[in-house]
Design a binder for these strands. Structure first.
Lengths: 211, 211
DNA sequence: GACTAAATGGATACCGCTGTCCACTTACGT
DNA sequence: ACGTAAGTGGACAGCGGTATCCATTTAGTC
């Protein structure tokens, strides 16, 4: 694993970080699929540097995504710390969806699994398990409908991802409204019967290699 | 406008139709963005033929999409003929969403406006107005919440579009569940306050030129 | 059946993006 | 200070896709 920051010369380590920052920004504004050259230029490094550090586009995406997943994990922690389980559930969902709107790269990455990543894998399961606990508590409190499935979270994220395209102002409004609609349906009070949940999990659901 | 079928030699007219059929099929299975050469091969014609008939990829998409919009319009007509306004509303939405799942090209096309098309424009407004009437009647019957906006339909379609990717079986299940959730929220009975609707219409909402 | 304009297909020029190679530069131990 | 290995940037070959050109074939008319 040559990507690891340890054992790197000081300047190389510096450049590595610059690349990650540039990539995050580029992915956020222009989506994954942005030319590698654009990332390199933005970072102020040459192609070779970029490719030595991140041999494939996927490895770069993976690394950037791992960082963002960490942010995500902290949101889940906040939700767990909330004394009101439903409020925690609701706030976590609203925050992640808002994040998808502002950061297009994050959005796409969420939909494009990269099974290789290791750190990423750990953060992911941490998020999954943490959120599972949030769900359990909200159900126990009688606020979240009992037939809510984790796959429904995926459903919401995927849906919101589509909403998150286009001019940011509109996208934000649209996302808020979609989330409000769905949160209302998630409430236990007026639950109506549903078709079965699809067999989707955070990794399984995804469209294969994007392109 | 060289695209028009009239005044074409018989064989040319025939080939034009073969291209449209091939394109519809190719778009449906492999998405818009399928290589033009693949469409040509599938239609059993050369590149030149394809490009003479449809000078740009967009013009081809537009034409195919116009046909599919017609199907869509007939669904709206069915909804209008339904004596139960809410049932009509519900059935129309379920049908269109199911169509998005089976036909990936249609889905993408729905998200990628092409303002130039003329026939397309007519079919579109026909669908919009027809569905507007469906909505009006469902509201009048007290079954659809009063603050439902046409933009909410766009919201649903865009969301469902993201759901419609991946293996068809899973996608279908996921779509059914999403639609069920949203339809529940659309019902007047238990309506809760919502954030304002985004200013989206069928053409306005769209992300600019796809790629 | 013969003539002509329309229609055709495949070869081809072209373009943008990826990923590699190599001659030069720089950090760091001594 | 200086040697060396690590690091660097830009040039470049390869690839997959688009759009065009032109020699050949074919439909429709007399």
């Amino acid at each position: 694993m040559p990507g690891h920051p340890s054992h790197l010369r000081a300047d190389a380590r510096d450049n590595r970080q610059r690349i990650l920052d540039a990539a995050r920004e580029a992915f956020a504004t222009r989506g994954l699929g942005v030319p590698m050259a654009a990332v390199a230029r933005r970072a102020g490094v040459g192609m070779a540097t970029l490719y030595r550090r991140f041999p494939s586009r996927e490895s770069l995406i993976t690394e950037v995504f791992a960082d963002e997943l960490t942010v995500c994990a902290s949101m889940v922690d906040e939700a767990l710390a909330d004394p009101d389980p439903w409020h925690g559930f609701r706030a976590a969902i609203e925050k992640v969806c808002a994040m998808q709107v502002t950061d297009r790269g994050f959005t796409e990455a969420f939909l494009t699994a990269f099974p290789e990543a290791v750190d990423y894998e750990r953060a992911r399961t941490r998020v999954e398990e943490g959120f599972g606990e949030v769900v359990r508590r909200a159900k126990a409190a009688g606020r979240l409908r009992a037939d809510f499935a984790m796959a429904d979270l995926m459903l919401l994220l995927k849906a919101n991802c589509a909403i998150a395209t286009g001019p940011e102002e509109e996208a934000a409004a649209a996302s808020r409204r979609l989330v409000a609609y769905l949160l209302q349906s998630f409430r236990a009070e007026h639950a109506e019967p549903l078709p079965p949940a699809p067999p989707l999990t955070l990794d399984k659901l995804i469209s294969p290699p994007a392109r």
